[in-house]
Amino acid sequence: MKKEEYLKYVEETTKRADVKKTFLFSFLFGGLICALGEALRLFFLNFSLNEKDASACVSCFLIILTAILTGLGLFHKIAKIAGAGTFVPITGFANSVISSALEFKTEGFILGVGAKIFVIAGPVIVYGTAASIICGLVFYFITLLGGTI
């Protein structure tokens, strides 16, 4: 069997996850997390917090919830079903940080937890920041040229 033939055979016979089911679950779980966020947001707004602070509180709440579920070993069980439903919301970001912190505890709190806490989520912060700085430069030049942003 030639290499090309074999690669074609592998590609053809590779089983993919049940697409409909994963799509449905990611939509449901993602939707539920966002709806929970919205309920919390409206609740915080009722407490006369402004829009921004209410959103920040929602994020904090979801991060703390994720932290507890991750610590108890429940998060990855939910995530197995939910897929992108838990991984695209802020819960996925929080879980990738907290699971790394937990995992590398055996290498100590400085070289393990401290150094490896962003081993998965690091790129998100790096490229998020880089993209925001590029946007900032564009905004800055627009204001220099007398435009409004």
Binding site: K15, T22, I78, F87, N95, S96, L102, E103
Partner: peptide, 17 residues
């Protein structure tokens, strides 16, 4: 798992293969 893939508590879906 921790050497080759992800932390144990990381929530991801494993491929069927």
């Amino acid at each position: 798992e921790r050497q080759f893939r992800f932390p144990l508590e990381y929530g991801g879906q494993r491929a069927l293969t």
